[in-house]
């Protein structure tokens, strides 16, 4: 006859062994998931890199210049197109004074 303490010991041993095995499997699974996620991150980063490269290709200064000049009708800035705020105030003042006179 197996006495109850022996039964308990066997039960505990079995329980610990099964639990350890379960934990090991759980961790292994998570390790694999983590490795997959890490690789996915690197892969996505690589994809982003490709997209950035494509964006950089599309934003080439020569291409943007052609679009700006030919499609948008923009033109190069000449010095007379640039005004200082101070100059604008002076011009506005002189216009107002001229009207008042």
């Amino acid at each position: 006859m197996i006495r109850s303490p022996s039964f308990l010991i066997i039960f505990v041993i079995l329980f610990v062994a099964i639990s350890l095995y379960q934990i090991k499997h759980f961790i292994t699974k998570k390790e694999i998931e983590l490795a997959e996620i890490k690789n996915n991150v690197i892969r996505v980063k690589s994809d982003i890199n490709i997209l950035n490269a494509e964006l950089s290709y599309l934003k080439r200064p020569d291409r943007i210049e052609k679009i700006a000049l030919n499609k948008l009708g923009l033109k190069e800035i000449s010095p007379s197109d640039i005004w200082n705020l101070k100059d604008l105030v002076n011009v506005t003042d002189s216009l107002i004074n001229g009207k008042n006179k």
């Binding site: 062994a17 350890l20 095995y21 934990i23 090991k24 961790i27 292994t28 390790e31 694999i32 983590l34 490795a35 997959e36 690789n39």
Partner: peptide, 16 residues
């Protein structure tokens, strides 16, 4: 049952 992290990572990386 004991965890050998490095090995598992290597194996899983290889799997991927």
């Amino acid at each position: 049952a004991s965890l050998k992290t490095e090995n598992i990572s290597q194996i899983s990386s290889k799997n991927v």
